[in-house]
Design a protein around this nucleic acid. Structure first.
Length: 497
RNA sequence: CGGGGCGUAGCGCAGUCCGGUUAGCGCGCCUGGUUCGGGACCAGGAGGUCGGUGGUUCAAAUCCACUCGCCCCGACCA
């Protein structure tokens, strides 16, 4: 008999549901420091799998990993005007290098040593453009040094007012790519290449459909010439910016005087890009697929893809069942799957089912005496449905089932997104849409910031992207959804995280 | 920074309004036994500076003042 649910239903309170899913799946926990989070093994495994997939693609496209320091001289941040403006309000500063014992008891036992003040404070990186361009200036002399294609996996700190597990934490993990090129066209191509990688990763690995496009001036990265993004729609109909790729033009090259000699002997500033995805993706994964029973992990990123649960009554049954479970685990592991066999005693199978479901395991294989006798296991999909699988063909069947689940998740998420999208909106529809359930709203846009502001002030929806051609509506909007004047482009509005 | 909520055992809570035995309940945890095809049961057991400081009182989880922290909503942002 089902006990009271440990997970708040989505329909009742989406935020509470989100937190409950994370806690029940043991993905993360709150840290002693406000706004920070501990990523627990289950959550970190997802991140490692994400890293592995992305890193492979970065290498395949010619990028190399490097590591730049956590601390950046405060003055560096000030070099690029828009960049300072963007980050000044959220940087953490290191001003001293020592504490000293005070001789007092308790919390007052140590205090800042005032004699250890740094001459120039250091900022804890909110992003690394500034240090990286300082180094690029040293490393790049000739067109022969270009393109320079670097990436780093790192932590960054942004002192946000309000935080949410994975989606916005004071410290987070990410990947930041930084490249320098000899022409604007090449930098632009790089930014688009990365956007394609992000999109493919979101769809193929996370089973999270995204729309791609360009950010408006208002939403653009501080210091960028142009910002591209992938945007996904969560189950509460709010949009999540899941990755960004910036064409930085020559903004940072000029600020840090990164110049190279051309083949013809001239001296030019490089053209550069930067791009990143973060542990926020895990939040996106959670809010795309999970349900009221807990996490639903897409097979390709599931820390555990298959869990084997034995069922027995007598000791004799136990040993027979355990043997089959152990053998199946070995076979599946050898085939490269991430497998767990839940041999814990003193816990009924049903209790195990609930626990593994909360952890998002895509496929559960139940093995009881009757199955052993029949040479089969019972496969239960996290997304619903049970069917027997023959032991003889288990590895193959598991593989195809996992692939089917992966596909099914993407298809379902895409269908849900389309159900919550509306096209060709006018002002009244836009307001109704966002006063109601919300979602993605496509409409014409005149290009004026005042229109973006107007909508935001009314229903707190912003332009997520000016969509790329393949996401645009069949019918080209003629007028701005807000002001009714001539439209210069289509835009996608949503309330966003 | 504004608004709301909450700090009592690992987790979830009751008790606080109206001060008074040894601070209680559910889940979880430990030991033993019986169980095991969708959240088992019995018996025994461990676990608490009631967020902190100060005050009122014969007596404070409870009243008063101050303070710290967390969660949610908003502004800002990936």
């Amino acid at each position: 008999m089902a006990r009271a649910e440990k997970i708040t239903p989505r329909a009742q309170d989406f935020s509470a549901w989100y937190n409950d899913v994370i806690m029940q799946a043991e993905l993360a926990d709150y840290s002693p420091v406000r706004g920070c989070m501990v990523i627990r093994p289950n959550g970190y495994r997802i991140w490692e799998l994400m890293q592995q997939a992305l890193d492979t693609r970065f290498r395949e496209t010619g990028h190399q990993n490097a590591y730049f320091p956590l601390f950046i001289p405060q003055s560096f941040l000030a070099r690029e005007a828009a960049h300072v403006e963007g980050f000044a309000k959220e940087v953490a500063l290191v001003t001293h290098t020592r504490l000293r014992a005070t001789g007092k008891e308790g919390a007052g036992a140590i205090a800042v040593d005032p004699t250890s003040a740094l001459e120039e404070p250091l900022v804890v990186r909110p992003t690394s453009e500034t240090v990286i361009y300082a180094m690029f200036a040293k490393w790049i002399q000739s067109y022969r040094d270009l393109p320079l294609l670097l990436n780093q996996w790192a932590n960054v700190v942004r002192w946000e007012m309000r935080t949410r597990l994975f989606l916005r934490t004071t410290e987070f993990l990410w990947q930041e790519g930084h490249t320098a090129h000899a022409s604007h066209e090449e930098a632009e191509r790089e930014a688009r290449t990365i956007l394609d990688i992000y999109r493919a990763f979101a769809e193929e690995w996370m089973a999270m459909p995204v729309i791609t496009g360009v950010k408006t001036e208002r939403e653009r990265f501080a210091g960028a010439f142009r910002t591209y993004a992938i945007e996904a729609l969560m189950q509460d109909n709010k949009a999540l910016q899941a990755g960004t790729s910036h064409d930085l033009g020559q903004n940072f090259a000029k600020a840090f005087d990164v110049r190279y000699q051309t083949a013809s002997g001239g001296l030019e500033h490089v053209w550069s890009t930067s791009w990143g995805v973060s542990t926020r993706l895990i939040g996106g994964l959670i809010m795309t697929h999970s349900d009221d029973h807990g996490l639903v992990a897409p097979p390709r990123l599931a820390p555990v893809q298959v869990v084997l649960v034995p069922i027995w009554r007598s000791e004799e049954e136990r040993s027979r069942v355990t043997e089959v479970v152990t053998r199946a685990r070995t076979d599946l592991e050898r085939a490269g799957y991430r497998v767990a066999a839940d041999l814990r005693d003193g816990m009924k199978p049903g209790a195990k089912y609930f626990e593994w479901e909360a952890r998002g395991v895509p496929l559960r294989l139940e093995v009881g005496p009757r199955d052993v006798a029949a040479g089969q296991v019972v496969a239960a999909r996290r997304t619903g449905g049970k069917a027997p699988l023959a032991m003889d063909t288990l590895v193959g069947e598991v593989g195809s089932t996992l692939e089917a689940i992966q596909t099914e998740l993407l298809t379902a998420a895409r269908a849900r997104r389309e159900q919550h999208s509306i096209r060709g909106v006018d002002r009244e529809q836009l307001l109704d849409w966002f006063r109601g359930a919300g979602g993605f709203a496509y409409g014409g846009f005149c290009g004026r910031e005042s229109c973006e502001e107007g909508i935001k002030a009314e229903v707190s929806a912003t332009i997520r992207v000016l969509p790329d051609p393949e996401f645009r509506s069949a019918e080209v909007p003629q007028v701005c959804a807000w002001c009714g004047e001539a439209s210069i482009t289509e835009a996608v509005w949503a309330q966003a995280y």
